[in-house]
Amino acid sequence: MSEAVEEFVVRPMRALYPPPQHLRNDDSLLAEALGTYHRVLAGFDRATLAKGWDRVVAEHQFWVWPNPGFIVEACRQCAPPPAAANESQMRRQQALALADAYTARFMKTTHLAKLAQVKGWGPPLAEYVREAAWVQAQIIVGVKDIGFATLLIPKERRFRPADECFAAYRETIAGPVERGRIRVTVPPARIREWAAAVRGDPDIPDQHRRG
Rank of each mutant, 00 (worst) to 15 (best):
Asp201Ser: 10
Arg199Tyr: 08
Arg209Cys: 07
Lys155Asp: 15
Arg179Leu: 04
Glu164Ala: 13
Ala149Cys: 13
His111Ile: 07
Arg199Ala: 15
Ala174Arg: 14
Ala197Gly: 13
Glu164Tyr: 04
Val184Ala: 00
Ile204Ser: 10
Asp145Phe: 04
Ile140Glu: 05
Asp145Val: 08
Val141Trp: 03
Ala149Gly: 09
Arg181Cys: 09
Val141Ala: 07
Gln138Arg: 01
Phe148Asn: 07
Pro124Phe: 12
Val198Gln: 10
Pro202Gly: 06
Ile204Lys: 03
Ala126Trp: 10
Ala137Glu: 01
Arg158Gly: 07
Cys165Ile: 08
Pro187Ala: 02
Gln136Leu: 01
Arg130Pro: 06
His208Glu: 13
Ala196Thr: 12
Ala126Thr: 09
Ala167Trp: 03
Ala116Trp: 04
Asp145Arg: 14
Arg170Gly: 09
Ala137Met: 02
Ile191Met: 15
Lys119Trp: 10
Tyr128Glu: 05
Gly142Arg: 03
Ile140Thr: 03
Phe148Ala: 08
Lys155Arg: 12
Phe166His: 10
Gly200Leu: 11
Tyr169Trp: 09
Val186Leu: 05
Arg181Tyr: 03
Gly180Pro: 03
Gln138Pro: 00
Ala126Met: 12
Pro176Asn: 00
Leu112Trp: 00
Ile191Glu: 12
Gln138Ser: 02
Val143Ile: 02
Ala196Ile: 08
Pro161Arg: 02
Gly122Glu: 12
Gly175Thr: 04
Tyr169Val: 01
Ala137Gln: 02
Lys119Leu: 13
Lys155Ser: 13
Ile153Thr: 13
Ile153Ala: 05
Val198Lys: 08
Leu125Pro: 13
Trp121Asn: 08
Glu164Val: 15
Leu152Asn: 03
Gly147His: 11
Ala168Tyr: 11
Ala132Asp: 01
Ala196Gly: 12
Asp163Ile: 06
Leu151Asp: 05
Gly120Phe: 09
Pro124Gln: 11
Ala149Met: 07
Ala113Thr: 05
Ile146Leu: 14
Pro187Thr: 00
Arg183Tyr: 00
Thr110Gln: 05
Ala189Cys: 07
Gln136Ser: 02
Val177Tyr: 01
Trp194Phe: 15
Gln207Ala: 10
Glu131Trp: 08
Leu151Phe: 03
Pro123Ala: 06
Pro176Arg: 00
Pro124His: 10
Glu156Leu: 11
Val143Asp: 04
Leu115Tyr: 10
Arg157Lys: 15
Pro123His: 04
Pro202Asn: 06
Ala174Cys: 06
Asp145Pro: 04
Pro176Glu: 00
Val198Ala: 05
Val129Phe: 03
Ile173Gln: 00
Gly180Ala: 04
Arg160Leu: 14
Glu178Lys: 14
Gln117Cys: 07
Asp163Arg: 09
Gly120Trp: 07
Pro124Met: 10
Glu164Leu: 08
Gly180Trp: 01
Gln136Trp: 00
Gly147Glu: 14
